[in-house]
Design a protein around this nucleic acid. Structure first.
Lengths: 329, 329
DNA sequence: CTGTTAGCGCTTTCAC
DNA sequence: GTGAAAGCGCTAACAG
């Protein structure tokens, strides 16, 4: 690899001058600039960002900590983040933190690599305090977890409203017995959806009924099977995410209950899959790419010196597809 | 951020000794090790990998260049790569190269960041030579593009066989008029699938019929519509990927042709979605995670000094689901 | 067992 | 307009 000294030698100037010619800082004669440029091309010179960072304390890198890459909710979010970062000439370290243990280790590595900022999706730790100690003094943005992060800047969707609009949509179709398949209690986003659901039910004069189901297909299926086994009457379900909703639809169709004929189902997230399942899933759409790009924008501001805690809340919207229909019982 | 000198000062030793205490290189008294350890904890010291890299010429980072993050084929691959890298204490820079222009720019950045190696999925450039000049002297592995990369180490699936087994499966079900929906001609993986398809058709004494359809849902749908408009007779399709197959199934069902009742469809890749569409897609499964992890393994070997070109070919397998059935015409 | 010196590649004073 | 020197945080080589 050619160094700036090689370039300088080839151009017949000092390293200092070559540096100035390349950066545009300081006065350099046009002729010199040209000669340096030629040397750069000839040697295929690429400035060593490592050396530059050591001096500037800026690496122009960002760490993106994801709980599970294969979760279909993340690709769009990661893409949004990557594109925003790329526009800012920043490069993203993608790390998967599948346990608190690994998260601690990987975040430590990220600190060592001197990333300018860290974006964490969800919270891999039991508490916000754990996250804070792991991250130390590096700028931090938490995505998709707001309520439990009082002192941290966050980007999150309006999940209370998300819980509302699913119910509103169903009530509009004449449903009265609407059950909510709740996500993991550890995730505060689940709790918010539950609150939104409960609030909406009560405002319509209906009785809330929440069942734990988690964020996986299997959980949604199991919850429905339990409901059916207990002969709980219902004509509609709202799920904590699309995967759970898809599991619920499967269990329903296996039990001979047509969707939306007998039971209407509303998902949450609007992952790609939602439009491909049959019937296509009605769901509460999160702007995943925006979640990623706004996180990058916010962390960039924090890196530039912004110190106040910013909590950005993005809107969700109902996407009506085929899995919901008029109540007929 | 605390430096090693801060730690050394706190422990009452020189920076060198602190360094040795931390790395385990060289003889250091147990007592010193303990005192350094205490200082590290007290100061929340994290070694600066940037400084370390400048010296060692090793950054323990890898660049992963993906053409399109949101393509459902990639998450599993990226996850495989990330997990393998993490096991090797390496961190991955994820960059999306949506054009040759951006690819050149981003790979340049990766070079500047002194990544130890670059893994490129597909080829963002018109030719292998372009890729080589962009990457320069950094270790390189190309994933999912083998034929056109004679001098580069690659990890790829056996797409010729992939083309075969789709046909074999259909012939086994009694199909004779089997059309192949080909992927983009630019991708050599498409060409291999076409060859495999043609070879298999001829070995069964059947006439190949290839139609261009691309890698997108819309392409698959459009191809089927054209076929139908031209009254081309067929009872089965093999597609270049799952997305195209899903598009084909849609066009088929829109035209009132049931799958697999009237037409059987075989996809390619086995993305998550394949098992969720209705009918669930029979497809040729690629071990995507392995593609990623093997690429990391190979690049690590190259970084360790391996110089010979390695071309790893992974097997594909047919996953029979609901979109294929016996031919009845 | 420990410390001093030097230097990785770069940029930023300070001097001319 | 250009160059020499210093130093970012770290560790390898060379003392002692």
């Amino acid at each position: 690899m050619a160094t700036i000294r090689d370039v300088a030698a080839a151009a017949g100037v000092s390293a200092t001058t070559a540096s100035r010619a390349l950066s545009g800082n300081g006065r350099v004669s046009p002729a010199t600039i040209v000669r340096v440029g030629i040397a750069v091309d000839a040697l295929d010179y690429q400035p060593n960002e490592i050396a530059r960072s050591l001096l500037s304390k800026r690496t122009m890198t960002l760490g993106l900590v994801v709980p599970d890459i294969t979760n279909p909710f993340f690709p769009e979010l990661v893409a949004g983040a990557e594109r925003a970062a790329s526009a800012l000439e920043r490069t993203i370290f993608l790390v998967e933190a599948r346990s608190a243990e690994r998260a601690r280790h990987d975040i430590g590595l990220l600190r060592g690599r001197a990333v300018d900022g860290i974006i964490v999706i969800g919270n891999p730790f039991p508490s916000a305090a754990d996250l804070l100690t792991a991250v130390g003094s590096i700028p931090l943005i938490v995505v998709d977890r707001a309520a439990s992060m009082s002192e941290i800047s966050t980007v999150c969707c309006d999940h209370f409203n998300g819980g509302n609009i699913g119910v509103d949509h169903l009530v509009g179709l004449g449903h009265k017995r609407i059950i909510h398949l709740a996500g993991p209690v550890a995730a505060d986003v689940s709790a918010q959806r539950v609150h939104g659901y409960e609030f909406a039910m009560r405002s319509h004069g209906l009785t809330p009924h929440v069942v734990p189901a988690g964020f996986e297909i299997t959980g949604g299926a199991a919850a429905v099977e339990a409901l059916l086994a207990d002969h709980v009457p219902f004509t509609a379900l709202t799920a904590a995410n699309d995967l759970s909703a898809i599991g619920a639809m499967r269990a329903l169709s296996q039990a001979g209950l047509s969707v939306p004929g007998r039971v209407s189902v509303v998902g949450y997230d609007d992952i790609q899959m939602a439009s491909f399942v049959s019937p296509a899933l009605t769901t509460v759409r999160q702007p995943s790419a925006d979640l990623g790009s706004q996180a990058v924008e916010l962390i960039a501001r924090q890196i530039e010196g912004e110190t106040k805690v910013i909590r950005r809340v993005l809107p969700v919207e109902l996407v009506a597809r085929e899995s919901t229909g008029r109540a007929n019982s």
